[in-house]
């Protein structure tokens, strides 16, 4: 019974958020303002020809570090899932 109620609530909120998302996306199309990307485009040509590489490795290199860290963490977490390095509570 509670499962059914949960499904109804979830379905209802999904429908509402879908409508809201499509509505705001339609509005959004007219509002897109590139902002800082202008700056990257104008200044970037002095640094290297590929703008995305500049953004990824130069202006926002720190995000790329975070991305690499996620990759490492995921690898370690997968190894952990299959049993490497579990910790047991208790003394010697």
């Amino acid at each position: 019974m509670s499962e059914g109620i949960r499904n109804i609530i979830m379905g209802f909120s999904l429908v509402i958020s879908t409508v809201a998302l499509f509505q705001s996306t339609y509005q959004f199309k007219q509002l897109i303002y590139p902002g800082i990307s202008y700056l990257y485009n104008y200044v970037g040509t002095n640094i290297a020809p590929n703008m995305v590489t500049i953004v990824v490795f130069d202006w926002r290199g720190y995000d790329t570090l975070g991305e690499a860290l996620i990759l490492v963490t995921a690898v370690i977490a997968v190894l952990l899932v299959f049993g490497r390095g579990r910790a047991q509570l208790g003394g010697k």
Binding site: Y38, Y40, N41, T45, R60, D63, I70, A74, V78
Partner: peptide, 27 residues
């Protein structure tokens, strides 16, 4: 070039976000 090229910032964000998605999927 600057006036005609596509805007690079969102593309760079996506490069990061693709990898994030794939790693959480693996776990």
């Amino acid at each position: 070039f600057a006036q005609n090229s596509a805007y690079p910032l969102p593309f760079a964000l996506v490069l990061t976000s693709i990898v994030i998605g794939a790693s959480t999927m693996a776990v």
